[in-house]
Amino acid sequence: MKTFIITLSLLAVLVGFVFVNAHLVVRQISETATAVAALPLPEKPEDPARADLSGQGEQVRGIHQSWQEKLRYISLTVNHHDLMQVQDQFAALMGACEAGNYTDYILTLSMLQSGLSHLREQSLCSLGNIF
């Protein structure tokens, strides 16, 4: 009986952990996705290779820093391959801001949003994910 109760408690802890973890991971990814979505879109310059993206660059670095802090927890339960893709997209976005390239900025921002959205969907507790 003792073993049964311990096992039942373990199962309850596991189920609880899995649900709470899914909720936390989704929340953290959503926060980052919202911050990325709120990044300002600059006016399209005449020469797309010489845009002023210094303001955006600062913001992206801030978002990335907060993402790095979240990553310590997220990486415990989310596939590292997916996380690496988002990391790469952050790096590309920061690079585009540094280079002041409007086209690259728009493209990598789009890819980052897509990557975060993909990550969020994958962490949701949904029938689609289970089956």
């Binding site: 189920v15 339960t77 596939n79």
Partner: peptide, 28 residues
Amino acid sequence: RSTLLTGNGTLCEKYTVRERNVPMIAIF
């Protein structure tokens, strides 16, 4: 290019087929 970041989803979301990794909750 003109459709980038417009509408409800990004261009990447609309046209990229992503590798599907299974989340932990689904593994459970």
